[in-house]
C-alpha cells in the first residue's frame, strides 16, 4: 500500500546552519488493510513522515510509493491524493462549510463526482462515523470529537484506500478521544481500510497491528505492540511512556516478581495479579 525506501527529508533550520535531516534513511512498508501506529517525541520526524504518504511533502532523497505510484511523479498527483486521505490534529482547521453534510460533500464535489453519487457517499460516510443524525447541524457548534468525526467523514467520502491520522485526538477530551478511536477501529475492521495513526497516547497505539517508534528521523523500533511496549527502559529513554499497567508490572518485576513483561491492558494485568493472590 505504502512503501518508503531510503527516505530522507532535509530542511534548512536557519540560513546560516547546515542542512538538517528530519527523516534520515527511513525504510517502511505498510500493507493493505494494516493498522500501523507511529510513536515518537515532538520533533522526531513522525509528522514529516506522514506528510510524505500522500505527497504533501516530497523526498529529498529516496522514494515513496503509494499503491506503486512514485509520489515524485507529477502524473500521479491527483491519484495519490485520492488513494491516501489525511486527518489532522485540529478539527477547526479542517472544516470548510456551514452545514455538516455540505462539508462532507466538499471533496467529492471537487473530484467531479456526479451529484446522486455524492448524496450516496455523504450519507454513507456520515453513518460510518455515526454523525448522520446531525447532518444538518452547523459544524462550529459541535463538540471536538463530533467535529473530528465530520472531518473523518469528509475524507471517507473521497473513498481513499488508506487514511493517515496525524494526532487526531490531541485536542480532544477523553470522551471525544474514545469516539475517534472507535471510529478508526471501525474503518479498519469493517471497511478494511489501511490506517496509519500518529499519536502520543500509548493506550491508542496498543490497539494497532504494528507500532513504529521514531527518534531523530529514524525508525528505532518496528514490531507488534506487545514486543514494543515490553521495552520499558528503551521507550522511556526515547521520551515516551508505556501504559500504566505495563509500568506497574515492570516495577514489580524489578522488585523480584516474575510477571509477563508484555502486559498492555487492565484485563491482562488483573488476570496476572489475581493468580498471585489466589
Amino acid at each position: 500500500m505504502i512503501k518508503a525506501e531510503h527516505l530522507r527529508y532535509a530542511y534548512n533550520a536557519a540560513e546560516t546552519e547546515e542542512l538538517k535531516f528530519a527523516l534520515d534513511d527511513v525504510d517502511l512498508t505498510v500493507s493493505e488493510g494494516e493498522f500501523v501506529a507511529v510513536l515518537g517525541h515532538n520533533g522526531c520526524g513522525k509528522s514529516t513522515l506522514a506528510k510524505h504518504f500522500n505527497g504533501l511533502l516530497l523526498p529529498s532523497g529516496g522514494k515513496v510509493y503509494v499503491s506503486g505510484m512514485d509520489t515524485k511523479d507529477d502524473a500521479y498527483y491527483w491519484d495519490i491524493r485520492k488513494t491516501v486521505g489525511m486527518v489532522f490534529q485540529n478539527p477547526d482547521n479542517q472544516l470548510v462549510a456551514t452545514v455538516v453534510e455540505e462539508d462532507v460533500a466538499f471533496a467529492p464535489e471537487n473530484l467531479g463526482v456526479p451529484s446522486d453519487e455524492i448524496r450516496k457517499r455523504v450519507d454513507e460516510a456520515l453513518k460510518t462515523v455515526d454523525m448522520y443524525e446531525m447532518r444538518r447541524h452547523a459544524p462550529h457548534l459541535l463538540s471536538g470529537g463530533q467535529k473530528q468525526r465530520v472531518a473523518i467523514a469528509g475524507v471517507i467520502a473521497m473513498e481513499p484506500k488508506c487514511i493517515v491520522f496525524d494526532e487526531p485526538t490531541a485536542m480532544l477530551d477523553p470522551k471525544g478521544r474514545r469516539e475517534v478511536i472507535d471510529t478508526i477501529l471501525k474503518l479498519k475492521n469493517e471497511k478494511h481500510m489501511t490506517v496509519v495513526l500518529i499519536t502520543h497516547y500509548m493506550e491508542e497505539a496498543v490497539k494497532a497491528d504494528r507500532v513504529v517508534v521514531m527518534d531523530k528521523g529514524k525508525i528505532v523500533i518496528d514490531d507488534v505492540p506487545k514486543k514494543v511496549f515490553s521495552q520499558v527502559r528503551l521507550l522511556k529513554s526515547l521520551g515516551l511512556d508505556v501504559p500504566q499497567v505495563t509500568e506497574l508490572c515492570y516495577l514489580l518485576n524489578k522488585a523480584g516478581l516474575s510477571l509477563p513483561n508484555d502486559i498492555l491492558t487492565v484485563q491482562e494485568c488483573a488476570d496476572e495479579l489475581e493468580k498471585l493472590f489466589k
Partner: peptide
Amino acid sequence: AAGLDPAG
C-alpha cells in the same frame, strides 16, 4: 500540557 509528548 496539551499537545506535548510524554517527556514534555
